[in-house]
Design a protein around this nucleic acid. Sequence first.
DNA 1: CAAATCTGCGAAAAGGCTTTCTCACGGAAA
DNA 2: TTTCCGTGAGAAAGCCTTTTCGCAGATTTG
Lengths: 337, 337
Amino acid sequence: MSFQPTKRVRIYDVAQAAGVSVATASKALNDTGRMTEETRARVKEAASSLGFRPNAMARGLIQRRSFTVGLLTNDTYGRFTLPLMAGVSEELVDQGISVFLCTIEDDPALAKIHVDAMLDKQVDGIIASGKRIDRQLPVDLANLNIPVVYAFTKAPADAVSLVSDDAEGSREAVEWLKSLGRQRMVHVTGPRSFASVEERAGAYRASVGENAPVFFGAWSEQWGHEAVAQIWDATGEKPDAIFCGNDQIARGVVDALRERGVSVPTDVSVIGFDNWEIVAAATRPPLTTIDMNLKELGREAGRLVLALAAGETVEPGIRKLPCQLVVRQSCGGAPRS
Amino acid sequence: MSFQPTKRVRIYDVAQAAGVSVATASKALNDTGRMTEETRARVKEAASSLGFRPNAMARGLIQRRSFTVGLLTNDTYGRFTLPLMAGVSEELVDQGISVFLCTIEDDPALAKIHVDAMLDKQVDGIIASGKRIDRQLPVDLANLNIPVVYAFTKAPADAVSLVSDDAEGSREAVEWLKSLGRQRMVHVTGPRSFASVEERAGAYRASVGENAPVFFGAWSEQWGHEAVAQIWDATGEKPDAIFCGNDQIARGVVDALRERGVSVPTDVSVIGFDNWEIVAAATRPPLTTIDMNLKELGREAGRLVLALAAGETVEPGIRKLPCQLVVRQSCGGAPRS
DNA sequence: CAAATCTGCGAAAAGGCTTTCTCACGGAAA
DNA sequence: TTTCCGTGAGAAAGCCTTTTCGCAGATTTG
């Protein structure tokens, strides 16, 4: 199989078919300039019957933009980036804007290559993303001379930035457990070195009590198991609700409880964080959890980067978007209507 | 925060700085044309000291290509597409080629929008991918007049197509179990409606015996549990090795065996398929499994699409790339050196 | 020594579109 | 009737590179 391209239809052809000049054709198709509605319609008619599609490079060359945004991330696995990208793409697709996805694995050299490529291609803007919100990407995007929006990654102080509201998500989790009549909660979460961990734990304590128990560990099922062992092997009253820092921990907790003969959700409610479908749905019972609304985050990032590209003024600073409770079966209770 | 772009340095500036014409400058930078090495060096020197980066749209306009390839997929979750994309990107990045990722969720209208956008942007080629190799994307890419390579998705008969070699992977799994001295294997796998399932099961039977037991079910942990229940509740000799159709099933199997007090890998070896890190590593013990080498598939897809774009002739048909055994602990045995 | 060849480099066109500026025309105002 | 103005449309100038072609001058060949 080989392949040789054929000619495309140009605006010149459209103009000829409609019996006007290219200038008029251009204006007709872009709904600019002045002309009779009749002329405009005639041109559009000709364009669509010829199947004319403007050459994006010619247009981009003169307009100094590419109708393209770059999405830069170090989240190789795509856990956070893909939902985000889905949002970005969804928001921008009807404006004819495509998304370059570049995954750089914490490699500054690779990052630079990709950023340079984006710059060469005159992307309208860059959305920087990552796998945790308290680490910067290994590349400086500050003085790039093109719009940059940070989403789900750490941003310089004066940048436009978007993250999910961990504290609010935490409160939603606690409120839900409380509403189910749970009295004795514990929080099993990841390493203290993560800002999200502190944020979620802080909000949990603010809501439950400053001495409410928190177990810090790793982001793993393994740690969920261990934590249950620690809690159940200790003397004293057992909790009736466990709020986990992510879904993997929650899965470990649920499995460990089942192995101990503790019933979820009858004896203990377990709630996760992240709504990682693949983990949450496979857990027995399926996890009630907090969704970070990454897709919506992506949409908003798309909107903002476009606004900046259009020359609009956008207030810098961190925007926090609310999370959302997703009710499955690990807590009991029915979805709120 | 708002934003206004400043001027870029053009090849004209480089030419001036080097005291040559733009024509010479262009040829110098692209290592084409004839000139003294001294002139070439002087131009390159000027370019780099000015930080010149050629405008990709101007270049693309005249060369009729964009140094961009589109990656189309319906694998929303990215399980298969992301590793593939990593390979594509890795292969193409040093040629200055970027990748548009477009996820279309089995929506023909959305697919058409994205494909049209790619066409407008004059992508050098399209790589079509998906989440299973026996389903086509909901869009016809056949007469697009640009190079198309299919990777990990069903392709039209006369297309260039790339898939992992399921049968070969299956044989690797069986060989490994045999080499560990396992005698009584069973195969627990997904729904028969998947071509991969038939392929893997066929190769397994060809290798173990045409009456070797196969349990078809769903691609879920749940089914792994159930299958173990069926097998262990039945009368007769128990297997000493279970070859699973994917890692999720394998995880279900391992969990179910542990709950029954059957030791993995001492009593039974379990091997998965897919090497889905997040599942394979979290299983206790971590899964030995078959990796489909998606990244390599991506690299090859990148190479092929580029070859086609360069006008080279590529033999159409399906290319099967070998899988690879990844040894962890669920089978026993040590990694082959 | 004339003719042919080679060499290094530049002028100019091309690529497809947008945008500004100008123009011709017909009707309204003087 | 003359002047003025609003209107629809087109000519042409970019946008930034690449690429073809031609031109001098230097070198080799006959």
